[in-house]
Design a protein around this nucleic acid. Structure first.
Length: 112
DNA sequence: TTAGTGACTGTAG
DNA sequence: GCTACAGCCACTA
């Protein structure tokens, strides 16, 4: 896992996100080692649409818990519906109890 | 090869 | 509290 690209690392982390939990672009970027490349994380997720493998991109939101990526899904409510189907409550495209269900790879996957 | 762009974030005023 | 700006890396034209 040292040969992985930035994109591939993003996919690896996103795939590890447990159901009913969410994480942020910044958390993923920080976990990879480029905290200021959070934009690339989002852009990498944009490419997941053309990947053969399923990536739970809907579990990745911005640091405010806002579903900023929903516009890139099939429908504007696809992301919200998938989150709600996993037990995640949203309001106006914003995740409720965001701090409670936040899954931070830096803590959950602490690789010392 | 260069320039533009993007699902973001942190800092400063 | 909100707004504005810079930084970061990979891909496309």
């Amino acid at each position: 896992m040292t040969e992985l690209n930035f994109f591939e690392k993003v996919y690896e982390v996103v795939r590890l996100i447990p159901e009913g939990r969410v994480t942020t672009y910044g958390a993923i970027a920080r976990f990879i080692g480029s905290p200021q490349s959070a934009r690339m994380v989002g852009w990498a997720l944009n490419s997941t649409k053309q990947l053969p493998e399923w990536i739970p991109a809907h579990r990745v939101v911005n640091r405010n818990g806002l579903l900023t990526g929903k516009l890139h899904f099939q429908n504007n409510n696809t992301m919200r519906e998938m989150l709600e189907s996993e037990g995640i409550d949203t309001l106006n495209d914003k995740i409720l109890n965001f701090n409670n269900i936040l899954w931070d790879p830096n803590q959950e996957l602490n690789l010392d």
